[in-house]
């Protein structure tokens, strides 16, 4: 029972981590909370659903289209909404408000387009769980875990080991100087939004598979937000750790205590962490010397 819950918890955490890492990436570059990020996940799920349920494409192909769609939507958000605000040198608060607006538009738009009802992906697994000894583990949970782990490891390698990643880290540290040294910041912002969108799309499809697809499923973005505050705003690694802690905690609380207490405990955990370490679990705090 416990092991089963643990796998379930880590896989939920993996989904949170996919959203939270993109969220943290965007925060680290632009210093604002992209409230529309959860809706990007939702739209990715709908695109995939559309292609597999209505157009009868094989699931894998539909999932890839959904992920690509989410990347494009995220890219367009930056291109059409956020870039204008940045170029007008408006306060970052404006970016956050624009993001909230986008989130509302996306939620209500998909309500109009797809209806408010819960929709399901056609089943993709021949069996729903496998047994190892006396432990039953959901196949979908294992799949989620594997996909999230691979995606996040690749992301981590890209950020820490490649030249592209060096550029991202330089912009996050000092945007103006990164530009002076030849980094095309606009191009990098666009790419980062696309990558964050793809990760969110992945999360949306996995979430849709695990539960349902519906217009307000993007509210999971709030959980990802908490995860990334928990881990330290702007730190991708922190966001991943935070997401897994929160995923496991939620599943354990629902399983052993009561699902009504789930969110209460999550927020209590957040408050405790912020009281003890305000910069979050792995928040970057390099103080600047004169």
């Amino acid at each position: 029972m416990f092991l089963q819950q643990l796998v379930n918890g880590i896989s939920v955490g993996g989904i949170y981590a996919l959203i939270a890492s993109g969220y943290a990436l965007i925060y680290s570059l632009l210093g604002f909370s992209n409230w529309a990020h959860g809706e990007v996940a939702m739209l990715g799920a709908y695109v995939a659903l559309l292609f597999t349920a209505s157009l009868q494409l094989p699931f894998i192909a539909a999932a890839i289209i959904g992920i690509g769609g989410a990347a494009i939507i995220s890219f367009l958000n930056e291109r059409l909404a956020y870039r204008r605000i940045r170029e007008n040198k408006a306060p970052t608060m404006f970016l956050m408000i624009a993001a909230m607006g986008l989130s509302i538009v996306f939620q209500n738009g998909s309500m109009l387009l797809f209806g408010a009802k819960f929709q399901k992906f056609p089943p993709i697994m021949p069996v729903s769980s496998i047994s190892i000894g006396s432990v039953h583990v959901g196949v979908l949970d294992l799949l989620t875990l594997a996909v999230a782990a691979v995606a996040l490891i690749v992301l981590e390698i890209v950020i820490t080991k490649t030249k592209f990643g060096l550029g991202i880290r330089a912009i996050a540290s000092n945007t103006a100087t990164a530009g002076l040294l030849g980094i095309n910041t606009n191009k990098m912002f666009a790419l980062v939004f696309a990558i964050a969108g793809a990760l969110a799309g992945m999360a949306g499809v996995l979430l849709g598979l695990k539960y349902n697809v519906y217009p307000t499923m993007g509210n999971i973005g709030l959980k990802a937000f908490i995860a990334s505050v928990f881990g330290g705003l702007g730190s991708v690694r922190g966001a991943i750790v935070g997401a897994i802690v929160i995923g496991v905690t939620e599943v354990m609380v629902s399983g052993y205590l009561s699902s009504g207490l789930r969110d209460l405990i999550t927020f209590a955990l957040l408050i405790i962490i912020l009281l003890i370490k305000p910069s979050g679990l792995m928040g970057v705090s390099v103080e600047e010397k004169a």
């Binding site: 103006a176 002076l180 030849g182 390099v286």
Partner: peptide
């Protein structure tokens, strides 16, 4: 664009140093 300037062979070391505080010296 500022990011195209350095490629022409002209580099600007800005006032106040503006180093990348969150990056290692090597980076």
């Amino acid at each position: 664009h500022d990011y195209d300037v350095v490629g022409t062979g002209l580099v600007h070391v800005p006032e106040g140093r503006q180093i990348f505080t969150h990056l290692t010296v090597r980076d």
